[in-house]
C-alpha cells in the first residue's frame, strides 16, 4: 500500500531534482530532460492526491498533461535539434542570441 504522503515526498524529490538539473546543467538537452522531471513531479502529485481522495479527476488530468507534454517535447526537441545545427553547440551560455 502506497500512502499519499509517500507519493508527495517522491513528487517533491523529483521536483527538486528537476529544478537542480535546470539550474546546474549547461547542456540544453539535459535541461529539457530536467524540465520533464518537474512536469512529472506534478503528475505524480496529482495521481497521489487522486488516489488519496478516491476521485479519478486527478488521474484524468494526468493523462491530459502527458499528452500535451508529448506534443511540447516534440516541439522543444525540434527547436534544440535546429539550434544545434545552426550553432554547432548545445551549451546554454553560447545560445544567448535572444539576449539584449
Amino acid at each position: 500500500m502506497i500512502a499519499a504522503n509517500d507519493c508527495l515526498l517522491m513528487s517533491g524529490a523529483l521536483f527538486a531534482l528537476g529544478v537542480a538539473g535546470v539550474i546546474l546543467r549547461r547542456n540544453i538537452l539535459v535541461q529539457l530532460m530536467s524540465l520533464e522531471m518537474i512536469l512529472n513531479a506534478a503528475n505524480l502529485a496529482l495521481a497521489g492526491f487522486s488516489r488519496a481522495h478516491g476521485n479519478l479527476d486527478g488521474q484524468v488530468m494526468v493523462f491530459f498533461i502527458i499528452t500535451v507534454a508529448a506534443a511540447e517535447v516534440a516541439v522543444g526537441l525540434a527547436i534544440v535539434v535546429i539550434l544545434f545545427r545552426l550553432k554547432k553547440t548545445a551549451h546554454v551560455h553560447e545560445l544567448a542570441g535572444l539576449k539584449l
Partner: peptide, 12 residues
C-alpha cells in the same frame, strides 16, 4: 545577468 539559470535560482 540575462542568464536564464540565474533567474531560476532567484525564483527557486
Amino acid at each position: 545577468s540575462g542568464n536564464l539559470q540565474t533567474y531560476l535560482i532567484y525564483l527557486s
